[in-house]
């Protein structure tokens, strides 16, 4: 279980996330929705341990307190973040990057096996073979970057994945495809927190729980019906 207890996140004096709590079990899909600027990404980044935030509260991964751990240590314990804006790294090839990541996470594969499975997962995410040897995200379109995040998730097979706006920049077919990847991973036991401000992707998903963020707090929690409500009335519930 990924358990977030009373998380408070600050940048300097700004209090961006207020007392947010959440429990994501293995094999569960949670959707976190909210307006732009409501603190969703800050929440995700703080869980991953990205620098620049002061964090209070606690984060437990399968019972282990990871609140004070470095980013890489969290990742090695099975946490994954799909970035809203993945960086471009001209100096490193995509394949090498993913291979090293798998090595670090203790799931290294033989090169030939790795190559097959990465190309296969790139294809699942909607990217052709050329993305295997291109530099990490370098010159990728917004949509291609999101697909590459999904392919990395498939390779690393984390216990818990936070997908920050995995749907933005994707066309409708790709959104559907992303949804089907998420569904199948959840079925296999991955716990997923999907962050979005667009209800569209939810139409292709069957979340166990929906959380609505407003001004850095969880304003509402419920089932899939909340999405229909937002579609009808917007975020000012």
């Amino acid at each position: 279980m990924l358990k977030i207890n009373n998380l408070n996140v600050y940048i300097g004096k700004r209090h961006l996330v207020k007392d947010a709590s959440m429990q994501i079990n293995s094999g569960e899909l949670h959707v976190l929705m909210g307006k732009n600027g409501s603190g969703k990404s800050t929440f995700a980044n703080a869980i991953m341990g990205l620098p620049g935030y002061d964090v209070k509260g606690s984060i437990l991964l399968d019972g282990e307190d990871i609140t004070g751990m470095g980013i890489d240590a969290r990742a090695r314990r099975g946490l994954f973040l799909s970035f809203q804006n993945p960086v471009e790294i001209d100096e490193i090839k995509n394949s090498l990057f993913v291979r090293q990541a798998m090595k670090a996470c203790g799931i290294a594969q033989e090169l030939s096996e790795f190559k097959l499975s990465f190309i296969n997962n790139l294809a699942k995410a909607g990217l052709d073979e050329s993305f295997y040897s291109r530099s990490v995200n370098s010159g990728f379109s917004g949509g291609e970057k999101k697909k590459n995040e999904l392919a990395q998730m498939l390779m690393l097979n984390p216990k818990y994945a936070i997908l920050d706006e995995i749907d933005s920049g994707l066309d409708i077919n790709s959104v559907k495809n992303a949804a089907s990847i998420i569904t199948s991973q959840v079925k296999k036991g991955m716990g997923v927190l999907l962050i979005t401000h667009n209800p569209l992707i939810s139409e292709f998903l069957n979340p166990d729980m929906v959380h609505i963020f407003s001004n850095g707090s969880i304003a509402k929690q419920g089932g899939k019906e909340l999405i229909a409500l937002i579609k009808g009335e917007g975020y000012d519930l």
Binding site: M48, I71, A75, F80, V87, I89, F97
Partner: peptide, 20 residues
């Protein structure tokens, strides 16, 4: 941060970057 978020230790991330 991006590299570390995939489990790669900081020193390995720097080495990888320099190699590239």
């Amino acid at each position: 941060s991006y590299m570390r978020s995939r489990g790669i230790r900081e020193s390995d991330a720097i080495t990888m970057y320099i190699n590239g």
